[in-house]
Amino acid sequence: MTTARVFVIGHPIGHSRSPMMHGYWIARHGLDATYEKRDVAPEDLGAFVRQFRAEGWTGCNLTIPHKREVMAHVDSIDPAAEAMGAVNCLWWEENRLIGGNTDAYGLIAHLDNSRPGWDRGASRAVVLGAGGAARAATWGLRQRGLEVDLCNRTASKAETLADELGTGVAGHGTDQLAELLAGADVLVNTTSLGMIGQPPLDLDLGPMPAHGVVYDVVYAPLETDLLKRAAARGLGTVDGLGMLLHQGAKGFERWFGVMPEVTPELRRMLEDDIRADLAKH
């Protein structure tokens, strides 16, 4: 029996924690499989996909700068990737190579896991940012029936993204945040503000309702200044590490037909790795 081979590709790719995560699940399920990271320059993407097809490799994760460009190299694109204009996962369905996106699934699954019942009665969310993570968060929240207000420092970017995502999404500048937060059940920060090396997100959480949930996709540090302030206010908090874990689990299921468990042990492994990495800086 041939060993199943799965990859994560990007340029650069040295920072990826996906091999640790998937290696844990492969061992836990006793699979004859490997998960490798490979640096693939943009001009080499087509050659990589041709080799992927020729070798019959099992699956692949993709990160910057390949998430859009790979769409030209697959046979079909799933609805999530179509809506988000980005692919982060390749798998086979019979002999067709599918490009999909598990980011929105990961974000919502982590919300479900961390704050069970968060969407009971929830109707509005505010999403900060206008990049790929904002697109994933908005699409996932819309699937749960929430209306989404996208806020970005450059209002035109939020408005353009809102137009692309369609009904139930509106774009705004950050000057309207206070008013929007007053009616928000969920706030999701998809910007890099608060990440190590970046300034903190300067945001007054005072207007948010007491039942509100604050989700920060940043996971280095594990508890951002935004989450600390949200906790101090008594708001529900959700960190970004679980999104990485749950989106990875969905990809694993696509490749191997089994949904792996996001265990406390695995989370601790990644937390320790993040802390060790932060200690170097």
Rank of each mutant, 00 (worst) to 15 (best):
M1P: 14
A4W: 11
I9S: 05
G10W: 12
G14S: 15
S16T: 14
Y24Q: 12
Y24M: 10
I26P: 11
H29A: 11
H29M: 12
A33F: 06
A33N: 02
Y35K: 11
E36T: 14
V40R: 00
D44S: 13
G46E: 12
V49G: 05
V49Q: 00
V49M: 03
V49R: 04
R50P: 00
E55L: 12
E55I: 01
G56T: 08
G56K: 07
C60I: 04
C60A: 11
I64K: 04
P65S: 13
H66S: 07
K67Y: 08
V70F: 07
A72T: 12
H73E: 15
V74R: 08
D75L: 05
D75M: 02
S76R: 15
D78R: 03
P79F: 04
A80V: 15
A81I: 08
A81Q: 05
A81M: 04
M84I: 14
M84P: 04
M84D: 00
A86K: 00
C89A: 09
N95V: 03
L97K: 10
G99Q: 09
A104G: 09
G106H: 12
L107G: 08
L107Q: 01
I108C: 05
A109N: 09
S114V: 07
R120F: 03
G121H: 06
G121D: 04
G121F: 07
S123F: 03
R124V: 01
V127Q: 10
V127A: 00
G129Y: 07
A130S: 14
G131T: 14
A133D: 02
R135T: 13
A136R: 03
A137C: 00
W139F: 03
W139C: 08
G140I: 04
Q143Y: 07
Q143N: 12
C151Q: 00
N152L: 03
T154Q: 13
T154M: 03
S156Q: 15
T160N: 06
L161T: 01
A162M: 00
D163P: 01
E164I: 11
L165N: 15
V169A: 06
V169R: 00
A170G: 05
H172Y: 07
Q176N: 08
L177P: 00
E179C: 13
T191D: 11
L193A: 10
G194N: 08
M195G: 12
M195E: 05
G197P: 04
D204N: 14
L205N: 11
G206D: 13
G206K: 04
M208K: 01
G212A: 15
V213C: 11
Y215L: 12
D216S: 09
V217D: 01
V217E: 10
A220P: 04
A230G: 12
A232P: 00
A232G: 01
R233K: 13
T237H: 00
D239L: 02
D239V: 12
D239S: 08
G240D: 06
G242L: 04
L244D: 05
K250C: 07
F252Y: 14
F252Q: 04
F252W: 05
E253T: 12
W255N: 03
G257K: 07
P260G: 07
P260S: 05
P260D: 07
E261S: 08
P264E: 09
L266G: 10
L266M: 10
D273Q: 14
D273E: 15
I274L: 11
I274S: 06
